[in-house]
């Protein structure tokens, strides 16, 4: 079982709070990779990464057929955030059984706290030509992290969790 460092927890927050823009990497069951940037990110417990389900298309389809994902920092990298987190993901959407459990994370707790993320942590730092006009959240992607490796130049592949 992994445990995030404090530095990781501070990085895995929305950019407006000193966190990061992240890349969520998924794959179809037969190995067609997909990479998409995400702004709404947080940690939960010591080994879960939460990502808002807004505008997810291929990412959502991939997670529904294959839970294996990787999460990495897109920006800022220069602050030493050279990590790739690997684990199993589920998209806890509205309508899930309220007692659904994903490696210890409870659906009710997740949706109560992060189910209206745009209101809780509005994307004030996102430039006007990129920001979405109306955010519609359908759920929260919960990544149960099982391991992490480095992509820091000179240390690529080294285990960090």
């Amino acid at each position: 079982m992994v445990k995030f460092t404090q530095e990781m927890k501070e990085a895995l927050r929305v950019p407006g709070k000193g966190g990061s823009l992240i890349y969520l990497c998924t794959s179809s069951r037969d190995g067609n990779p997909n990479i998409a940037a995400m702004r709404f990110v947080a940690t939960h417990m010591d080994d879960k990464i939460l990502i808002a389900d807004m505008f997810l298309l291929k990412t959502k389809a991939n997670i529904k057929e294959n839970p294996d994902v990787a999460v990495t920092i897109c920006h800022p990298l220069e602050e030493g955030r050279w990590w790739v987190f690997k684990g199993k993901a589920v998209d806890i959407e509205y309508g899930f059984p309220r007692d659904f459990d994903w490696y210890g994370a409870n659906a009710t707790d997740i949706l109560n706290e992060w189910g209206n993320w745009n209101k809780a942590e509005p994307p004030d730092e996102v430039p006007p030509d990129i920001v979405f006009p109306k955010a519609v959240q359908r759920g929260v992607v919960v990544v149960h992290v099982e391991e992490a490796y480095s992509i820091e130049p000179g240390h690529v592949g080294d285990k960090v969790l």
Binding site: S28, D30, N62, V69, T72, K86, I151
Partner: peptide, 18 residues
């Protein structure tokens, strides 16, 4: 760029293309 590949079984890996 962030480069993403996946095994035939669907396990993704990422490295930087600096």
């Amino acid at each position: 760029c962030h480069l993403c590949v996946a095994t035939q079984e669907g396990v993704p890996f990422v490295v930087l293309g600096r």
